[in-house]
C-alpha cells in the first residue's frame, strides 16, 4: 500500500482540506465570472474564457487527486493505471466533435429562421399552392 498507517491518516486530512479549498476557490471563481462579486466584470468576454478554463483545470485537478490518492491509483501497477486511464482520452475527440456539432445545429437553425423571414414576391398569392423551387423568385 506504500504508506504506513500514520502517514496514510495524515494524507487523508490533507486531502480533505485540499478538496474543500479547491471547491471553494471554484465557487468563488464561478461567481466572480458571473459578476456576483464585482458587478460589471461579466461584460468582458475574455474573462469568461479565463474563468471557464480555470474551472476546468481545477476540476481536472480534483479528479486527478481523487483517482490517484483516494482510489490508490498511485500505488497500483502501471499497466493497470494505463488500461483504465488511456481509454478516457477518446473522450477528448468526443468533446470536440459534439460541441462542434451543437454549434452547427445553432447556425442551421438561425439560417432557417432568417430564410423564413425573407418575403416571397407577393405578386401572385401562393397560399395553399404547391410551390416549386424553380418557380420562386430569387435564390431561396
Amino acid at each position: 500500500m506504500g504508506l504506513s498507517y500514520e502517514e496514510g491518516k495524515k494524507k487523508v486530512v490533507k486531502g480533505l482540506y485540499l478538496l474543500a479549498a479547491v471547491t471553494l476557490v471554484e465557487v468563488f471563481i464561478s461567481l466572480l465570472g458571473k459578476g456576483h462579486i464585482i458587478s460589471g466584470v461579466e461584460k468582458y468576454s475574455v474573462l469568461l474564457y479565463i474563468v471557464g478554463l480555470a474551472l476546468i483545470v481545477l476540476s481536472l485537478y480534483k479528479a486527478y487527486f481523487i483517482i490517484y490518492e483516494f482510489m490508490h491509483m498511485k500505488y497500483e501497477v502501471k499497466g493497470l493505471a494505463l488500461t483504465v486511464l488511456l481509454p478516457t482520452t477518446l473522450l477528448i475527440w468526443a468533446i470536440i466533435a459534439f460541441f462542434q456539432e451543437g454549434n452547427s445545429w445553432k447556425n442551421r437553425r438561425e439560417l432557417i429562421k432568417d430564410k423564413n423571414e425573407v418575403e416571397v414576391n407577393s405578386s401572385s398569392s401562393q397560399t395553399g399552392e404547391v410551390i416549386r423551387l424553380e418557380d420562386l423568385p430569387g435564390n431561396i
Binding site: 459534439f98 451543437g102 438561425e110
Partner: peptide, 8 residues
C-alpha cells in the same frame, strides 16, 4: 454540452 452550444 452539445445541446447547450446549439441553443441561442
Amino acid at each position: 454540452g452539445a445541446l447547450r452550444f446549439s441553443s441561442p
